[in-house]
């Protein structure tokens, strides 16, 4: 019995448990499916982030001759070309960029600021603050999300056309101004619905940690609320929060794809999987030019699938009971 051993000796002897995050990470690495998902996501993210370096052509370079349009995949254009003779592979790379940027912004605002912030507030403060936040979340979660998102985007798009022209003329944004404005609108339409799930998870965790003895001890020592929340509660909340986010990732990214598909999100010439698919997604088009739909949908389908698998694997590592909310 080592009485004065180092922490490592104690880990080895099984006297104390290893810190949870390492255990989780190692358990995750053991799951083959999760590894494949992570592998694909790394490729997707690097392709999107480094799109300007990787793309063989300018994604907006049109070539309107009969031979150049809707070419099947070849060594020159590995995904073929689209209806305007643009290189589809380059467009897919830039579409990945749109997806990455959109999910990042929604997760930072809706997930991190609203979801985590409101969840901590509701869980730690309790009382009417808790009731109000949770009930609002409950009712917002029950609204017909898609119709509302459509209504928000449809009414704001025409409304701030003026703004995007102004930005185009008066700032350095130039042609990007229109895309930026449309991007902001779909982010604004998604965020009100993106915080609900994660704030519920965070609140639940906060409630249980708040009652633990180390929080009571910190309170007794006179630690400030800020310190208690950030140093004592946050570390315990983070793992499940991250799990929840990764499970909802596909849904968040899917919102942008669906809106762009309907012509309410990112419009051409801006590239988004939504508008790439809508250009290719009719059965007669598919019959004649199958590469258009396959090349523009498969990358994002695998993206959704990978996040779903990863989320599933992560949820599984934490207690299976987290699935059931009764």
């Amino acid at each position: 019995m080592a009485i004065a051993g180092t922490a490592d000796d104690l880990y080895a002897a099984g006297e104390i448990a290893r810190p949870r995050r390492y255990r989780t990470l190692r358990a995750l690495l053991r799951k083959k499916i999760a590894m494949i998902a992570i592998f694909y996501l790394v490729i997707f993210y690097s392709a999107g982030i480094f799109a300007p370096l990787v793309a063989p052509y300018d994604p907006n370079d049109q070539e309107l001759t009969v031979e150049a349009r809707r070419q099947p995949p070849s060594s020159e254009h590995i995904f073929g070309t689209d209806g305007l003779g643009r290189d589809l592979f380059s467009r897919v790379l830039y579409a990945a960029r749109t997806t990455i940027l959109f999910t990042l912004v929604v997760i930072l605002t809706g997930g991190l600021i609203l979801g985590l912030g409101l969840g901590l507030l509701a869980g730690y403060r309790g009382g009417w603050v808790d009731t109000a936040i949770m009930r609002i979340g409950e009712v917002l979660g029950g609204l017909p999300t898609l119709i509302l998102m459509l209504a928000i985007t449809a009414s704001f798009r025409t409304r701030i056309n003026g703004l995007s022209f102004w930005l185009e003329d008066h700032t350095w944004l130039g042609d990007d101004a229109k895309t930026l404005v449309k991007f902001t609108i779909i982010v604004g339409a998604s965020v009100p619905f993106a915080w609900i799930g994660s704030s519920r998870i965070v609140r639940g965790q906060t409630l249980s940690i708040r009652e633990s003895s180390f929080v009571l001890a910190a309170e007794a020592m006179g630690a400030s609320t800020w310190r208690i929340v950030t140093r004592h509660i946050l570390p315990g909340v983070m793992p499940l929060f991250v799990v929840g986010l990764s499970a909802s990732m596909a849904g968040i990214a899917g919102a942008e794809v669906a809106l762009s598909y309907l012509g309410l999100g990112i419009d051409p010439p801006g590239a988004s999987f939504g508008n790439l698919i809508s250009d290719a997604g009719f059965v007669r088009t598919f019959e004649q030019y199958p590469h258009l739909l396959l090349a523009s949908s498969m990358p994002v389908v695998f993206f959704f699938f990978s996040w779903n698998l990863l989320g599933d694997a992560l949820v599984d590592l934490f207690e299976p009971r987290t699935h059931t909310q009764g």
Binding site: A250, A258, S278, V283, S297, F305, L309
Partner: peptide
């Protein structure tokens, strides 16, 4: 266990607007 769940998750990852033209082409045309 993971194989069963994952294979159903694959269907969940395909948006309806991608799935529809594929099955329309296969089963109808």
């Amino acid at each position: 266990d993971p194989l069963t769940i994952s294979s159903w998750l694959a269907l969940d990852a395909i948006p309806a607007f991608v799935m529809v033209p594929l099955v329309q082409w296969l089963f109808a045309l």
